[in-house]
Design a protein around this nucleic acid. Structure first.
Length: 516
RNA sequence: GACCGGUUCGUCUAGGGGUUAGGACACCGCCCUUUCACGGCGGCAACACGGGUUCAAAUCCCGUACCGGUUACCA
């Protein structure tokens, strides 16, 4: 039998990291086994479901490269089937009508009320008086229009059990499971029923989901049994927790929890996918970087962990705003991935920052016509900024970058004349040495006289210049770096000069703007 | 409360009877270097606790503690 798995989020918000990881594991398992990865939107809670969430989930999955293979199933479309199933169980005596009036609960206190009720020691799960109502009376009351919910009639004694692919044998006494509601009194099918019906209908063979569903699974197995259908294999995933080991939630933790945050923050999809894969699973080897193909090849359910993982970030520290390892992994991808793969991503980033120039894709490097997107960037009057220059520059500066954003932020000076100066860098490398204010324009004149502007020759000129001024080479280099790039860090200054080219180097060395 | 899970460096984790308990991130130090968040070398740092079983326990068993999940006419 071919494997069929599904990712089944409810569209009640952005795509949460934990959900994204569940989607990834489902996808990996499907690919690993030559199976099919499906997507089902669990929108039965109409009040909380939004189209925007659905869109955001779809976007997130596509960003991660997890493409579902058949049409997306919307659970709400199957409501009639769910209702029919509940009626069937009712007719077969496996479920019963509960005429107890629905309790009114305000959303905020639901959780507390549940916990409070549960605290009332040892409640008997079978004490519902309607459980044994005669068929005749039940039918009569229903026919009279009295509202009722349909509950599954769980047997008095026995237990549900299943072999979880991650957690092993799971057992639960029937007496610990209530007669769960299948159909609300307003005719609305409830989650556990809907999930089972849809999983059966979609021929799902493996249900891979968070371990917060572990107790639901017992309820669902009860439904499978009532329906006479063999349940699929279950694999429950450990949860991803906040640094305080509590639940990771948007309300408490904000944007760090949302997948789109990472897309918007300049993460490489492959890097984040790699990071996510290692949150709760490992191949059992001393290796951190895995391509998608490698993940698929190595993935297996039995290497999924049983303990929850902490997503480690520091809310008030911009440097550690998200998990350090995710940041590191992204940097690792940026500096080691093939240029062919990186370039389009950098291009997209520059485009969105209005720094992109069409000439970066020209093999003829003579074009200086500014494109529409780069209209507010002054044209560069030098004929050597085509594709080759772009590729070399990206390759040069990527080594100290953490996210794609860095190309347009720290790296802005490579692509625009309009860049900011980091005040710390200015203080440390420029204003601390007032002589530089006249020296650097002077150096510009020397550069202007140079025939060919290559690293070796630049080095000679700068060294001679520093010697002449009786100062350390570093003073000149660091001053020039700050003036030319706006920041204090970067690649070898000789490469920076060469990359920027003579014209731009000269222009910037003469500029007094940073001094003000 | 009840039921179900879990517990190896700060974090992600390897290891499942005999290991100097390994790797990665973070942090610290040294080196490279004109600076640097690149790179190189090194350091700090963990088997929750208590009992058993065993010649031998991080590893198997029991208990305790702590953490998490669930306990809805939410999903």
């Amino acid at each position: 039998m071919t494997t069929r798995v599904r990712f089944a989020p409810s569209p009640t918000g952005y795509l949460h990291l934990g959900a994204a990881r569940a989607a990834l594991y489902n996808y990996l398992y499907a690919k690993k086994t030559g199976g099919t990865f499906l997507l089902r939107i669990e929108d039965t809670d109409l009040a909380r479901s939004t189209d925007e969430s659905t869109r955001s989930i779809l976007e997130g999955l596509s960003w991660l490269g997890l493409q579902n293979e058949e049409d997306v199933v919307f659970q709400s479309d199957n409501a009639d089937k769910h209702r029919a199933t509940a009626q069937k169980l009712l007719a077969e005596g496996k479920a019963y009508r509960d005429f107890t009036p629905k309790e009114q609960t305000s959303d905020k206190t639901v959780k507390e009320a549940i916990v409070e009720r549960a605290r009332q020691a040892d409640k008997n799960m079978r004490d519902n008086s309607y459980r044994n109502l005669s068929t005749v009376e039940s039918d009569t009351r229903a026919a009279n229009g009295e509202p009722y919910a349909i509950r599954l009639k769980v047997a008095e004694t026995g237990k549900t059990s299943f072999e979880d692919a991650v957690y092993g044998l799971q057992e639960r006494e029937y007496s610990d499971t209530e007669d769960l509601v299948l159909l609300r009194s307003d005719g609305h099918p409830l989650y556990n029923l809907a999930v089972v019906c849809d999983d059966i209908e979609m021929n799902i063979t493996h249900v891979i989901r968070g371990q917060d569903h572990l107790t639901n699974t017992h309820k669902q197995i009860l439904i499978y049994e009532a329906l006479g259908v063999t349940p699929p294999t279950f694999a429950h995933l450990p949860l991803i927790l906040a640094p305080n080991k509590g639940k990771l939630s948007k309300r408490k933790h904000g944007e760090v929890v949302s997948l789109t945050t990472y897309r918007d923050a300049g993460f490489i999809p492959a890097a984040f996918r790699n990071f996510l894969a290692l949150m709760g699973w490992s191949a059992g080897e001393e290796k951190e970087i895995y391509s998608l193909d490698e993940l698929i090849e190595k993935f297996s359910l039995d290497h999924i962990h049983r303990s929850n993982a902490v997503f480690n970030f520091q809310e008030n520290d911009p440097r550690h705003w998200t998990d350090d390892k995710a940041l590191w992994m992204n940097a690792e991808y940026i500096r080691t991935m093939s240029l062919d793969e990186l370039l389009p991503l950098v291009k997209a980033e520059l485009k969105s920052s209005k720094l992109w120039r069409e000439e970066y894709e020209d093999d003829e490097s003579s074009s200086t016509t500014p494109s529409a997107e780069a209209a507010d960037t002054p044209p560069i009057q030098e004929g050597s900024f085509g594709r080759e220059w772009f590729e070399r520059t990206v390759d040069l500066i990527r080594h100290r970058f953490f996210t794609l954003k860095d190309f347009s932020a720290q790296g802005r000076a490579y692509f625009s004349e309009d860049y900011d100066f980091d005040p710390t860098a200015v203080a440390k490398n420029l204003t601390k040495f007032p002589d530089l204010r006249t020296w650097l324009p002077e150096l510009a004149e020397r550069f202007g006289l140079m025939e060919s502007f290559t690293e070796a020759e630049i080095e000679n000129v700068v060294k001679a210049f520093a010697e002449e001024k009786g100062t350390k080479l570093g003073v000149i280099m660091n001053g020039a770096r700050t003036l030319l790039t706006g920041v204090a860090v970067g690649p070898s200054m000789l490469s920076v000069f060469e990359t920027l080219g003579k014209e731009r180097s000269v222009l910037r060395l003469r500029s007094q703007v940073a001094w003000n």
